[in-house]
Design a protein around this nucleic acid. Structure first.
Lengths: 209, 209
DNA sequence: AACCATATAGTACAAAAGTACTAGCTATAA
DNA sequence: TTATAGCTAGTACTTTTGTACTATATGGTT
């Protein structure tokens, strides 16, 4: 905590970046740079400087899902990554942590939680928004034995639903039969407990209520 | 600018509220209260205090669309409302300003723009993110003669698409025939230039790229 | 080895969604 | 007045979506 810390703030919303920027002053000696998309993050990382921490907005252009997090984590193993997201549903949190993130903070968290999380992560500990545990325990009650997770293929297709793609478009993009796409979608719906793609999209966008 | 200003920050994300809170210190003498949903806003407003300014996140629970903005504006005519939103598409901006907002700021704006906008609005002027004009001029090029706006009914049904409702559910909720619902949806799709409800949902969520 | 989840692909069918019409009513703009 | 646009509702039709099966292959667990 004594030496200068180098931190990247990655978020496409300038207001949010500015807010974080000010909050980070409370940590003491920090050098903060900002990034508005994946390209800017990678530009910073490849510039030779070694950063201590990357605060990564999950809803940012070029990131979108845990695959983006994974790429970033692998390309900068020296840098601790904390994912910040408005969607703190269990599967999102799990996917990000599995992808190599050192922390996950919900946008619903306050600045005190934020700072504590950063200090914990900088000390080498992993940190996950406590809301995660609240929700996953509720989840356990709901789904009882069906504590199934969404498979990579299902997540990939889920994202394409969110992007407004039709079954045919998905099948062409992934070189699959339409039948297979339907199978994956049905399996996804079963896990989410929904019966239409619009409901699946809503689940993805807003488990943050 | 000499007397104490009373401001409400309304956003469901604590981190964003904290960031704004700090930024607002730059205005000098300000008294800031926070609200996490519509109920908390109304509680503040009905408490008897007169507020000078309400910074209102459009993506907040209980607000969702310009109807929410309208209700707030009408219930507190003494308070200037600035809408803050990640979606700064033309129709969203227009709907909010028509609903009685004094300003519209994109989340992509920086803190300097933010502060300038607030000062402008407190001085009695209306302010709209300049990005609006950029986009609306592009829009004019794209749609040429078809600069049609989304009607209230269409917006209402659009919101229900986003909520994952089926045509049947919408028709029951609004006491309409399914045929009428389909007609409204087709009209909406024509204006948005899409051919499926999932694409319409995507348009709603992300014209912010 | 037996079992399970995943991924693939097919058939078949029912339900929902989307489009294209017509048509009457209202309100507003040219 | 004549358009124009919205809101309503209907019919008719095609396409898409969603479900329920079967079936094969793979990789991991017990």
């Amino acid at each position: 905590m004594i030496d200068l810390m180098k931190i990247i703030i990655a978020d496409d919303h300038a207001l949010f970046r500015d807010g974080l920027h000010v909050l980070l002053q409370a940590l003491g000696q920090v050098q903060v740079v900002e990034a508005r998309n994946r390209r800017e993050i990678e530009a910073h990382l490849k510039h030779g400087d070694v950063f201590d921490l990357l605060l990564l907005d999950l809803d940012m252009p070029g990131i979108a899902n845990s695959d983006g997090v994974k790429r970033i984590c692998e390309s900068a193993p020296q840098t601790a990554v904390i994912v910040i997201s408005g969607n703190d549903a269990g599967y999102v949190v799990k996917a990000c942590m599995d992808a190599g993130a050192m922390g996950f903070i919900s946008k619903s968290s306050g600045s005190k939680v934020m700072l504590a999380a950063i200090q914990m992560v900088l000390a080498g500990e992993r940190y996950v928004s406590s809301g995660y545990f609240d929700k996953s325990s509720e989840h356990a009650l709901d789904h009882s034995s069906t504590a199934t997770s969404i498979s990579p293929r299902q997540q990939q297709i889920w994202q394409m639903l969110i992007d407004g793609k039709s079954n045919k478009e998905i099948s062409i993009a992934l070189s699959l039969s339409e039948s297979t796409v339907k199978q994956h979608i049905s399996a996804l719906f079963r896990k989410l407990g929904v019966h239409s793609r619009t409901q699946a999209i809503q689940k993805a966008h807003l488990e943050k209520m």
